[in-house]
Design a protein around this nucleic acid. Structure first.
Lengths: 200, 200
DNA sequence: CGCGACGTTGATTTGCCTCAACGATTGTGG
DNA sequence: CCACAATCGTTGAGGCAAATCAACGTCGCG
Protein backbone atom coordinates (compact mmCIF):
# COMPACT_ATOMS: atom_id res chain seq x y z
CA UNK A 1 0.00 0.00 0.00
CA UNK A 2 2.62 2.56 1.00
CA UNK A 3 4.19 2.62 -2.46
CA UNK A 4 0.99 4.02 -3.89
CA UNK A 5 1.25 6.97 -1.58
CA UNK A 6 4.89 7.33 -2.40
CA UNK A 7 4.04 7.60 -6.05
CA UNK A 8 1.16 9.91 -5.38
CA UNK A 9 3.33 12.39 -3.53
CA UNK A 10 6.40 12.09 -5.71
CA UNK A 11 5.46 15.00 -7.93
CA UNK A 12 4.40 17.42 -5.24
CA UNK A 13 7.49 16.61 -3.21
CA UNK A 14 9.65 17.51 -6.14
CA UNK A 15 7.70 20.72 -6.43
CA UNK A 16 8.22 21.58 -2.78
CA UNK A 17 11.89 20.66 -2.89
CA UNK A 18 12.52 23.37 -5.45
CA UNK A 19 11.99 25.86 -2.67
CA UNK A 20 12.22 24.15 0.74
CA UNK A 21 14.31 21.64 2.59
CA UNK A 22 12.16 19.27 4.66
CA UNK A 23 12.97 16.51 7.10
CA UNK A 24 11.19 13.19 6.73
CA UNK A 25 8.80 14.02 9.57
CA UNK A 26 8.01 17.43 8.17
CA UNK A 27 7.28 15.88 4.82
CA UNK A 28 4.98 13.37 6.46
CA UNK A 29 3.11 16.08 8.28
CA UNK A 30 2.68 17.94 5.01
CA UNK A 31 1.35 14.80 3.31
CA UNK A 32 -1.11 14.22 6.13
CA UNK A 33 -2.76 17.55 5.38
CA UNK A 34 -3.37 16.65 1.74
CA UNK A 35 -6.31 14.74 0.34
CA UNK A 36 -6.20 12.94 -2.98
CA UNK A 37 -9.14 13.37 -5.32
CA UNK A 38 -9.99 12.25 -8.83
CA UNK A 39 -12.46 14.28 -10.87
CA UNK A 40 -13.96 13.72 -14.29
CA UNK A 41 -13.74 16.09 -17.19
CA UNK A 42 -16.23 18.97 -17.10
CA UNK A 43 -16.94 18.92 -13.41
CA UNK A 44 -16.89 21.93 -11.15
CA UNK A 45 -14.44 22.27 -8.31
CA UNK A 46 -16.10 25.55 -7.40
CA UNK A 47 -19.12 27.52 -8.56
CA UNK A 48 -20.10 31.16 -8.21
CA UNK A 49 -21.57 31.90 -4.81
CA UNK A 50 -19.78 29.09 -3.00
CA UNK A 51 -17.05 29.73 -0.50
CA UNK A 52 -13.83 28.18 -1.72
CA UNK A 53 -12.38 25.85 0.89
CA UNK A 54 -9.47 24.38 -1.02
CA UNK A 55 -6.22 24.89 -2.79
CA UNK A 56 -5.56 22.10 -5.24
CA UNK A 57 -2.25 20.91 -6.62
CA UNK A 58 -2.76 19.32 -10.02
CA UNK A 59 -1.08 15.92 -10.23
CA UNK A 60 -2.63 15.23 -13.60
CA UNK A 61 -5.16 16.98 -15.78
CA UNK A 62 -6.23 20.42 -16.84
CA UNK A 63 -8.41 23.01 -15.17
CA UNK A 64 -9.70 26.48 -15.92
CA UNK A 65 -11.00 29.34 -13.77
CA UNK A 66 -13.42 31.84 -15.22
CA UNK A 67 -15.97 34.55 -14.54
CA UNK A 68 -19.44 34.41 -16.03
CA UNK A 69 -21.10 37.70 -17.00
CA UNK A 70 -24.84 38.35 -16.93
CA UNK A 71 -25.03 38.04 -20.69
CA UNK A 72 -23.48 34.58 -20.52
CA UNK A 73 -19.98 35.28 -21.83
CA UNK A 74 -17.07 33.77 -20.00
CA UNK A 75 -13.86 35.54 -19.03
CA UNK A 76 -11.16 32.97 -18.52
CA UNK A 77 -8.77 33.99 -15.79
CA UNK A 78 -6.39 31.05 -16.00
CA UNK A 79 -5.63 27.59 -17.23
CA UNK A 80 -3.79 25.23 -14.94
CA UNK A 81 -2.11 21.92 -15.73
CA UNK A 82 0.22 19.47 -14.00
CA UNK A 83 2.38 20.96 -11.25
CA UNK A 84 0.28 24.10 -10.85
CA UNK A 85 -2.03 25.12 -8.03
CA UNK A 86 -5.60 26.21 -8.51
CA UNK A 87 -8.03 27.94 -6.15
CA UNK A 88 -10.02 31.11 -5.71
CA UNK A 89 -7.59 32.60 -3.27
CA UNK A 90 -9.83 35.57 -2.60
CA UNK A 91 -12.76 33.45 -1.51
CA UNK A 92 -10.41 31.06 0.29
CA UNK A 93 -8.64 33.63 2.43
CA UNK A 94 -11.46 36.12 2.97
CA UNK A 95 -14.14 33.43 3.39
CA UNK A 96 -16.38 35.33 1.01
CA UNK A 97 -18.62 33.82 -1.67
CA UNK A 98 -16.67 33.35 -4.85
CA UNK A 99 -17.56 35.16 -8.06
CA UNK A 100 -15.88 32.62 -10.31
CA UNK A 101 -16.05 29.05 -11.51
CA UNK A 102 -13.33 26.41 -11.43
CA UNK A 103 -13.93 23.58 -13.87
CA UNK A 104 -11.91 20.63 -15.08
CA UNK A 105 -11.16 20.47 -18.79
CA UNK A 106 -9.81 16.92 -18.59
CA UNK A 107 -10.16 14.02 -16.14
CA UNK A 108 -7.89 15.18 -13.36
CA UNK A 109 -6.10 14.07 -10.21
CA UNK A 110 -5.67 16.57 -7.45
CA UNK A 111 -4.04 16.94 -4.07
CA UNK A 112 -6.25 19.12 -1.94
CA UNK A 113 -5.55 21.16 1.16
CA UNK A 114 -8.41 22.91 2.96
CA UNK A 115 -8.47 26.04 5.11
CA UNK A 116 -7.91 24.21 8.34
CA UNK A 117 -5.10 22.23 6.81
CA UNK A 118 -3.43 25.29 5.47
CA UNK A 119 -3.64 27.13 8.77
CA UNK A 120 -2.06 24.13 10.44
CA UNK A 121 0.60 24.01 7.76
CA UNK A 122 1.57 27.66 8.25
CA UNK A 123 1.57 27.20 11.99
CA UNK A 124 3.65 24.05 12.17
CA UNK A 125 5.82 24.52 9.09
CA UNK A 126 6.19 28.27 8.58
CA UNK A 127 8.63 27.67 5.72
CA UNK A 128 5.54 27.02 3.62
CA UNK A 129 4.48 30.60 4.03
CA UNK A 130 7.51 31.59 1.97
CA UNK A 131 6.64 29.05 -0.69
CA UNK A 132 3.06 30.23 -1.06
CA UNK A 133 4.08 33.87 -0.94
CA UNK A 134 6.35 33.23 -3.91
CA UNK A 135 3.56 31.40 -5.73
CA UNK A 136 1.16 34.29 -5.26
CA UNK A 137 3.85 36.71 -6.39
CA UNK A 138 4.40 34.74 -9.54
CA UNK A 139 0.68 34.80 -10.30
CA UNK A 140 0.74 38.54 -9.84
CA UNK A 141 3.69 39.00 -12.21
CA UNK A 142 2.04 36.85 -14.86
CA UNK A 143 -1.23 38.75 -14.60
CA UNK A 144 0.56 42.10 -14.79
CA UNK A 145 2.19 41.10 -18.04
CA UNK A 146 -1.06 39.74 -19.36
CA UNK A 147 -2.86 42.94 -18.47
CA UNK A 148 -0.22 44.90 -20.31
CA UNK A 149 -0.46 42.74 -23.42
CA UNK A 150 -4.25 43.02 -23.38
CA UNK A 151 -4.20 46.80 -23.70
CA UNK A 152 -1.10 47.22 -25.84
CA UNK A 153 -1.19 44.34 -28.33
CA UNK A 154 -3.53 43.12 -31.05
CA UNK A 155 -5.37 39.82 -30.80
CA UNK A 156 -2.92 38.29 -33.27
CA UNK A 157 0.14 39.30 -31.27
CA UNK A 158 -1.41 37.93 -28.11
CA UNK A 159 -2.31 34.66 -29.81
CA UNK A 160 1.15 34.16 -31.23
CA UNK A 161 2.72 34.93 -27.87
CA UNK A 162 0.38 32.45 -26.21
CA UNK A 163 1.18 29.67 -28.65
CA UNK A 164 4.85 30.38 -28.14
CA UNK A 165 4.64 30.38 -24.35
CA UNK A 166 2.13 27.60 -23.73
CA UNK A 167 2.29 25.13 -26.64
CA UNK A 168 1.14 22.27 -24.37
CA UNK A 169 -2.02 24.16 -23.43
CA UNK A 170 -2.87 24.96 -27.05
CA UNK A 171 -2.95 21.21 -27.66
CA UNK A 172 -5.24 20.43 -24.77
CA UNK A 173 -7.75 23.27 -24.57
CA UNK A 174 -10.55 23.99 -27.05
CA UNK A 175 -9.86 26.97 -29.23
CA UNK A 176 -12.90 28.95 -28.14
CA UNK A 177 -11.61 28.90 -24.58
CA UNK A 178 -8.21 30.12 -25.67
CA UNK A 179 -10.02 32.96 -27.42
CA UNK A 180 -11.78 33.95 -24.19
CA UNK A 181 -8.49 33.72 -22.33
CA UNK A 182 -6.97 36.12 -24.82
CA UNK A 183 -9.92 38.48 -24.48
CA UNK A 184 -11.47 38.00 -27.94
CA UNK A 185 -14.48 36.17 -29.37
CA UNK A 186 -14.02 32.60 -30.64
CA UNK A 187 -15.10 33.67 -34.14
CA UNK A 188 -12.49 36.36 -34.29
CA UNK A 189 -9.69 34.11 -33.12
CA UNK A 190 -10.65 31.73 -35.90
CA UNK A 191 -10.27 34.53 -38.42
CA UNK A 192 -6.96 35.59 -36.93
CA UNK A 193 -5.66 32.05 -37.28
CA UNK A 194 -6.76 31.68 -40.88
CA UNK A 195 -5.11 35.01 -41.67
CA UNK A 196 -1.85 33.77 -40.16
CA UNK A 197 -1.99 30.54 -42.13
CA UNK A 198 -2.92 32.23 -45.41
CA UNK A 199 -0.03 34.65 -45.07
CA UNK A 200 2.65 32.00 -45.35
CA UNK B 1 14.74 65.22 17.72
CA UNK B 2 13.07 61.92 18.59
CA UNK B 3 9.58 63.38 18.19
CA UNK B 4 10.22 63.94 14.49
CA UNK B 5 10.88 60.26 14.08
CA UNK B 6 7.83 59.44 16.14
CA UNK B 7 5.70 61.51 13.81
CA UNK B 8 7.39 60.08 10.74
CA UNK B 9 6.61 56.51 11.75
CA UNK B 10 3.19 57.13 13.19
CA UNK B 11 1.38 56.33 9.95
CA UNK B 12 3.31 53.24 9.03
CA UNK B 13 3.00 51.92 12.58
CA UNK B 14 -0.75 52.24 12.38
CA UNK B 15 -0.59 50.39 9.07
CA UNK B 16 1.43 47.55 10.56
CA UNK B 17 -0.76 47.37 13.66
CA UNK B 18 -3.75 46.46 11.52
CA UNK B 19 -2.11 43.13 10.98
CA UNK B 20 0.64 42.53 13.55
CA UNK B 21 1.32 42.93 17.25
CA UNK B 22 4.84 44.22 17.87
CA UNK B 23 6.84 44.84 21.03
CA UNK B 24 8.66 48.14 21.41
CA UNK B 25 11.98 46.54 20.48
CA UNK B 26 10.54 44.85 17.41
CA UNK B 27 9.06 48.12 16.29
CA UNK B 28 12.40 49.81 16.74
CA UNK B 29 14.14 47.15 14.68
CA UNK B 30 11.57 47.62 11.95
CA UNK B 31 12.08 51.37 11.97
CA UNK B 32 15.84 50.95 11.75
CA UNK B 33 15.44 49.17 8.43
CA UNK B 34 13.50 52.05 6.88
CA UNK B 35 14.94 55.13 5.22
CA UNK B 36 12.99 58.35 4.84
CA UNK B 37 13.10 60.07 1.47
CA UNK B 38 11.47 63.13 -0.06
CA UNK B 39 11.03 63.32 -3.82
CA UNK B 40 9.72 66.06 -6.06
CA UNK B 41 6.83 65.74 -8.46
CA UNK B 42 7.66 64.09 -11.79
CA UNK B 43 10.76 62.27 -10.67
CA UNK B 44 11.49 58.63 -11.28
CA UNK B 45 11.86 56.13 -8.47
CA UNK B 46 12.64 53.48 -11.08
CA UNK B 47 13.22 53.38 -14.82
CA UNK B 48 13.04 50.57 -17.34
CA UNK B 49 16.22 48.51 -17.33
CA UNK B 50 17.16 49.26 -13.75
CA UNK B 51 16.99 46.63 -11.04
CA UNK B 52 14.49 47.65 -8.41
CA UNK B 53 16.08 47.68 -4.97
CA UNK B 54 13.27 49.12 -2.88
CA UNK B 55 9.78 48.82 -1.61
CA UNK B 56 8.40 52.20 -0.68
CA UNK B 57 5.62 53.02 1.76
CA UNK B 58 3.98 56.28 0.80
CA UNK B 59 3.72 58.65 3.75
CA UNK B 60 2.50 61.47 1.56
CA UNK B 61 2.09 61.99 -2.15
CA UNK B 62 1.03 60.12 -5.24
CA UNK B 63 2.90 57.73 -7.51
CA UNK B 64 2.21 55.75 -10.66
CA UNK B 65 3.77 52.65 -12.20
CA UNK B 66 3.57 52.11 -15.95
CA UNK B 67 4.92 50.29 -18.96
CA UNK B 68 6.13 52.15 -22.02
CA UNK B 69 5.55 50.55 -25.44
CA UNK B 70 7.79 51.00 -28.45
CA UNK B 71 5.29 53.37 -30.04
CA UNK B 72 5.42 55.59 -26.98
CA UNK B 73 2.05 54.80 -25.40
CA UNK B 74 1.95 54.21 -21.68
CA UNK B 75 0.09 51.42 -19.91
CA UNK B 76 -0.55 52.45 -16.35
CA UNK B 77 -0.45 49.50 -14.00
CA UNK B 78 -1.27 51.30 -10.78
CA UNK B 79 -1.65 54.50 -8.89
CA UNK B 80 -0.53 54.62 -5.28
CA UNK B 81 -1.25 57.22 -2.63
CA UNK B 82 -0.83 57.58 1.12
CA UNK B 83 -0.67 54.32 3.06
CA UNK B 84 0.09 52.17 0.00
CA UNK B 85 3.29 50.43 -0.98
CA UNK B 86 4.93 50.78 -4.36
CA UNK B 87 7.69 48.74 -6.01
CA UNK B 88 8.40 46.54 -9.00
CA UNK B 89 8.15 43.35 -7.01
CA UNK B 90 9.25 41.24 -9.95
CA UNK B 91 12.50 43.11 -10.42
CA UNK B 92 12.93 43.38 -6.65
CA UNK B 93 12.60 39.69 -5.87
CA UNK B 94 14.11 38.19 -9.00
CA UNK B 95 16.88 40.79 -9.28
CA UNK B 96 16.09 41.19 -12.97
CA UNK B 97 16.02 44.46 -14.91
CA UNK B 98 12.64 46.07 -14.65
CA UNK B 99 10.40 46.67 -17.64
CA UNK B 100 8.44 49.45 -16.03
CA UNK B 101 8.70 52.98 -14.71
CA UNK B 102 7.75 54.29 -11.29
CA UNK B 103 7.21 58.04 -11.23
CA UNK B 104 5.87 60.50 -8.69
CA UNK B 105 2.79 62.47 -9.69
CA UNK B 106 3.08 64.81 -6.69
CA UNK B 107 5.87 65.83 -4.31
CA UNK B 108 6.06 62.77 -2.09
CA UNK B 109 7.47 61.45 1.16
CA UNK B 110 8.45 57.81 1.31
CA UNK B 111 9.71 55.22 3.75
CA UNK B 112 12.03 52.91 1.89
CA UNK B 113 13.19 49.40 2.62
CA UNK B 114 15.83 47.80 0.41
CA UNK B 115 16.54 44.14 -0.43
CA UNK B 116 18.99 43.67 2.38
CA UNK B 117 16.65 45.33 4.82
CA UNK B 118 13.75 43.20 3.75
CA UNK B 119 15.73 39.99 4.04
CA UNK B 120 16.77 41.01 7.53
CA UNK B 121 13.17 41.87 8.35
CA UNK B 122 11.89 38.46 7.27
CA UNK B 123 14.68 36.75 9.14
CA UNK B 124 14.33 38.58 12.43
CA UNK B 125 10.62 39.33 12.39
CA UNK B 126 8.97 36.56 10.39
CA UNK B 127 5.52 37.94 11.20
CA UNK B 128 6.20 40.45 8.45
CA UNK B 129 6.17 37.68 5.91
CA UNK B 130 2.48 37.21 6.64
CA UNK B 131 1.85 40.91 6.26
CA UNK B 132 3.56 41.16 2.91
CA UNK B 133 1.99 37.94 1.67
CA UNK B 134 -1.42 39.46 2.36
CA UNK B 135 -0.42 42.66 0.59
CA UNK B 136 0.64 40.77 -2.51
CA UNK B 137 -2.55 38.73 -2.40
CA UNK B 138 -4.63 41.88 -2.27
CA UNK B 139 -2.79 43.26 -5.29
CA UNK B 140 -3.54 40.04 -7.12
CA UNK B 141 -7.25 40.17 -6.27
CA UNK B 142 -7.50 43.77 -7.39
CA UNK B 143 -5.75 43.03 -10.66
CA UNK B 144 -7.96 40.00 -11.31
CA UNK B 145 -11.06 42.13 -10.97
CA UNK B 146 -9.54 44.84 -13.12
CA UNK B 147 -8.66 42.32 -15.80
CA UNK B 148 -12.20 41.04 -15.77
CA UNK B 149 -13.68 44.51 -16.07
CA UNK B 150 -11.32 45.31 -18.93
CA UNK B 151 -12.66 42.51 -21.10
CA UNK B 152 -16.28 42.50 -20.00
CA UNK B 153 -17.20 46.16 -19.54
CA UNK B 154 -17.33 49.26 -21.72
CA UNK B 155 -15.04 52.22 -21.16
CA UNK B 156 -17.92 54.15 -19.62
CA UNK B 157 -18.72 51.44 -17.09
CA UNK B 158 -15.07 51.19 -16.12
CA UNK B 159 -14.78 54.95 -15.73
CA UNK B 160 -17.86 55.23 -13.55
CA UNK B 161 -16.68 52.35 -11.39
CA UNK B 162 -13.28 54.01 -11.04
CA UNK B 163 -14.74 57.35 -10.01
CA UNK B 164 -16.92 55.54 -7.53
CA UNK B 165 -14.10 53.51 -6.05
CA UNK B 166 -11.24 56.03 -6.09
CA UNK B 167 -12.73 59.54 -5.90
CA UNK B 168 -9.56 60.86 -4.22
CA UNK B 169 -7.40 59.68 -7.10
CA UNK B 170 -9.66 61.26 -9.72
CA UNK B 171 -8.99 64.61 -8.01
CA UNK B 172 -5.24 64.22 -8.00
CA UNK B 173 -4.30 62.54 -11.26
CA UNK B 174 -4.47 64.10 -14.75
CA UNK B 175 -7.34 62.74 -16.80
CA UNK B 176 -5.18 61.37 -19.60
CA UNK B 177 -3.44 59.10 -17.08
CA UNK B 178 -6.73 57.84 -15.76
CA UNK B 179 -7.65 57.03 -19.36
CA UNK B 180 -4.50 54.96 -19.77
CA UNK B 181 -5.20 53.23 -16.48
CA UNK B 182 -8.65 52.30 -17.74
CA UNK B 183 -7.19 51.02 -21.00
CA UNK B 184 -8.55 53.71 -23.34
CA UNK B 185 -7.16 56.72 -25.16
CA UNK B 186 -7.34 60.13 -23.47
CA UNK B 187 -9.46 61.47 -26.33
CA UNK B 188 -12.02 58.76 -25.93
CA UNK B 189 -12.29 59.19 -22.17
CA UNK B 190 -12.98 62.84 -22.79
CA UNK B 191 -15.84 61.90 -25.11
CA UNK B 192 -17.18 59.38 -22.61
CA UNK B 193 -17.22 62.04 -19.93
CA UNK B 194 -19.00 64.61 -22.05
CA UNK B 195 -21.60 61.98 -23.00
CA UNK B 196 -22.22 61.27 -19.31
CA UNK B 197 -22.59 64.96 -18.51
CA UNK B 198 -24.84 65.68 -21.47
CA UNK B 199 -27.13 62.81 -20.55
CA UNK B 200 -28.30 64.33 -17.28
C1' DC C 1 4.98 86.77 -22.48
C1' DG C 2 5.43 82.24 -24.71
C1' DC C 3 5.70 77.49 -24.12
C1' DG C 4 4.35 73.01 -22.66
C1' DA C 5 0.92 70.22 -20.51
C1' DC C 6 -3.75 69.26 -20.66
C1' DG C 7 -8.48 68.67 -22.21
C1' DT C 8 -11.97 68.95 -25.98
C1' DT C 9 -14.12 68.10 -30.38
C1' DG C 10 -14.72 66.33 -35.09
C1' DA C 11 -13.66 63.28 -39.16
C1' DT C 12 -12.12 59.04 -40.47
C1' DT C 13 -10.59 54.40 -39.84
C1' DT C 14 -10.15 49.91 -37.72
C1' DG C 15 -10.16 46.03 -34.70
C1' DC C 16 -13.27 43.30 -33.02
C1' DC C 17 -18.18 41.81 -31.94
C1' DT C 18 -22.66 39.90 -33.04
C1' DC C 19 -25.56 37.11 -35.50
C1' DA C 20 -26.46 33.53 -38.55
C1' DA C 21 -25.57 29.61 -41.29
C1' DC C 22 -22.87 25.71 -42.17
C1' DG C 23 -19.62 21.37 -41.87
C1' DA C 24 -16.95 18.25 -39.01
C1' DT C 25 -16.19 15.68 -35.02
C1' DT C 26 -17.36 13.64 -30.74
C1' DG C 27 -20.13 11.39 -27.60
C1' DT C 28 -24.14 9.12 -25.89
C1' DG C 29 -28.39 6.70 -25.12
C1' DG C 30 -31.57 3.58 -27.24
C1' DC D 1 -23.81 -0.04 -33.51
C1' DC D 2 -26.29 3.47 -35.26
C1' DA D 3 -28.70 7.97 -34.93
C1' DC D 4 -29.06 12.10 -33.15
C1' DA D 5 -27.46 15.78 -30.19
C1' DA D 6 -23.99 18.52 -28.53
C1' DT D 7 -19.63 20.56 -29.10
C1' DC D 8 -16.49 22.77 -31.89
C1' DG D 9 -14.45 25.41 -35.60
C1' DT D 10 -15.17 28.23 -39.88
C1' DT D 11 -16.94 31.88 -42.79
C1' DG D 12 -19.53 36.01 -44.18
C1' DA D 13 -22.36 40.33 -43.54
C1' DG D 14 -23.12 44.13 -40.96
C1' DG D 15 -22.41 47.07 -36.97
C1' DC D 16 -20.23 49.43 -33.15
C1' DA D 17 -16.79 50.80 -29.72
C1' DA D 18 -12.76 52.81 -29.60
C1' DA D 19 -8.27 54.31 -31.98
C1' DT D 20 -6.01 57.65 -34.68
C1' DC D 21 -5.09 62.07 -36.47
C1' DA D 22 -5.59 66.82 -36.48
C1' DA D 23 -6.99 71.24 -34.94
C1' DC D 24 -8.03 74.21 -31.31
C1' DG D 25 -8.74 76.47 -26.53
C1' DT D 26 -7.12 76.91 -21.84
C1' DC D 27 -4.42 77.11 -18.08
C1' DG D 28 -0.22 77.29 -15.16
C1' DC D 29 4.45 78.33 -15.06
C1' DG D 30 9.41 79.50 -16.06
Amino acid sequence: MWFIFTLMFEQIDKFVDQCLLLTAEERELFHSLLRFRKVRKRSYLLQEGEICDFEAYIVKGCVRTYYLSDDGTETILSFAIEDWWVSDLYSFTEQKPSDMFIETIEDSELLIIDRKGKAELYEKLPQFETLFRLLVQRSLFALQRRFHSLVSQTAEQRYLAFVDKYPQIVQRVPQNQIARYLGVSPEFLSKVRSAIIKRR
